[in-house]
Amino acid sequence: MSFKSIKAAIIGCGRVAWMLEDDPLDTKPCTHMGAYRSFGSGVVEVIAASDTNNERLKAFGERYGVERLYNDYKAMLRDEGPEIVSICAWAIDRHRMALDAIEAGVKGIWCEKALATSLDEAREIAEASEAKGVAMIVSHLRRWSGEYNKAREIIDNNGIGTLQSIVCHFSGSLLHTGTHAFDILLWFLGPAEWVMGEIEKAAGKNDWDTPEDSGGRAFIKFRNNAYATIHAEARSYFFFEFDIIGSNGRIRIGNNGVLEYYIPKVSHYYTGLKELYAETFPEFEQRNIWTEALGNLINSVNGIEASRNTPRDGYMALELALAIHESSRSGDKVYLPLRESKIKVRSR
């Protein structure tokens, strides 16, 4: 079956939209526009873009030969009629942008994370996209990673026994960075039962940190009786890693090339005991997370497969971040799902 080329547009022409393609160290493509370009105009073509920053918008247009440039994204949606929209603006604006795109009749949305800044906003996005039949992915990109898919396969196939606990480290920003981590915890462990946490008093100094979206620490119980410990303090370096412990093995996985698998073997040091020793991590298919994500969205628009990270998934990841804020404010354990949370955290 053949499909006609899809018209796409980008809202917000900053780092994740296209500028990170200039990073000489990152694997390409590593942005929305890089992913669109990798598919070619016969599959999908970016026909327009919008940004309130004229200098950035002009630079984007010149770089990629996109001529239809707008300061007003609503005018772009009205005049250009894109079928897919990438929402790369800050989280404080994504709620309104997503609803406007849905109302304008788009068929698919690729939304950056966090999905929104409050649960009410995230719920409205999810409900509106479902009501209109709009395919949507939230950019928790490890869902499309070969490494993380293999780690989940090992867990699902009892490769480390019963999953007991995960220790998670990342560098501050419970919404901007943390929703990546919370999405993986939910993907590996299922729904959470309760959260107890504490927010740092000051935010970090990374480009994406904001005064409200600070880091912290938390302890989370999941309904499958596994636990996660979160260490998300602001640091002078980037850190993102999971230490996954089971009754019969261990996986370490994270950024900076961390990918390890351990199983019990006869101890080299203690008679009659077993200890964990490193095994070669099982082979997996190397995938570019950006092209995999866009391919999933295109297939969802064409009715071939479902989204692998829906607005409901984005909602649940955001819920964990906001539950830590709730617990920090109350000084007590917070049970999930959150019913009446009115916390709103301004995040990039």
Results as ranks from 00 to 15, higher is better:
204 G>K: 06
49 A>H: 05
126 A>Y: 10
172 G>E: 00
103 E>G: 01
162 T>F: 05
162 T>H: 14
149 N>D: 02
201 K>Q: 12
295 G>A: 09
62 E>Q: 11
244 I>Q: 02
216 G>C: 09
301 V>G: 01
310 T>I: 06
174 L>G: 00
153 E>N: 06
310 T>L: 03
148 Y>F: 09
17 A>H: 08
275 E>D: 06
30 C>N: 13
195 V>D: 00
252 R>S: 11
30 C>F: 12
12 G>R: 10
172 G>Y: 04
228 A>N: 01
61 G>F: 05
314 G>T: 12
303 G>C: 02
228 A>I: 13
273 L>G: 12
141 L>D: 04
307 S>N: 14
100 D>L: 06
10 I>K: 01
88 C>I: 10
298 I>H: 01
270 Y>P: 12
202 A>I: 15
300 S>M: 03
160 I>R: 05
275 E>V: 10
243 D>A: 08
58 K>W: 09
38 S>P: 06
82 P>W: 04
276 L>G: 01
4 K>D: 15
99 L>Q: 01
169 H>P: 04
173 S>K: 12
146 G>E: 04
245 I>Q: 14
30 C>E: 13
114 A>I: 15
42 G>F: 13
276 L>Y: 03
192 A>H: 00
152 R>W: 03
23 D>F: 06
22 D>F: 12
323 A>Q: 00
157 N>G: 03
329 R>Y: 04
109 I>D: 02
149 N>A: 05
121 E>F: 04
195 V>E: 00
137 I>T: 13
10 I>C: 01
90 W>L: 14
144 W>H: 07
264 P>A: 09
93 D>P: 08
146 G>L: 10
81 G>F: 08
227 Y>R: 09
76 M>S: 07
25 L>S: 13
26 D>R: 13
272 G>M: 01
250 R>E: 02
311 P>D: 03
313 D>N: 15
156 D>Q: 12
72 D>A: 07
347 S>P: 05
219 F>T: 10
226 A>I: 06
120 D>C: 02
142 R>K: 08
190 G>A: 02
292 E>F: 03
72 D>N: 11
267 S>Q: 10
190 G>W: 04
67 E>V: 13
273 L>M: 15
64 Y>N: 04
333 K>F: 02
305 E>M: 14
282 P>H: 06
109 I>T: 05
245 I>R: 14
32 H>F: 15
269 Y>L: 07
167 V>H: 13
77 L>Q: 08
239 F>N: 14
196 M>T: 13
11 I>F: 08
78 R>S: 01
274 K>M: 15
55 E>H: 14
19 M>I: 09
203 A>T: 08
18 W>I: 09
128 A>L: 00
258 V>K: 12
149 N>W: 00
52 T>D: 07
87 I>V: 12
31 T>C: 02
113 K>H: 02
106 V>C: 15
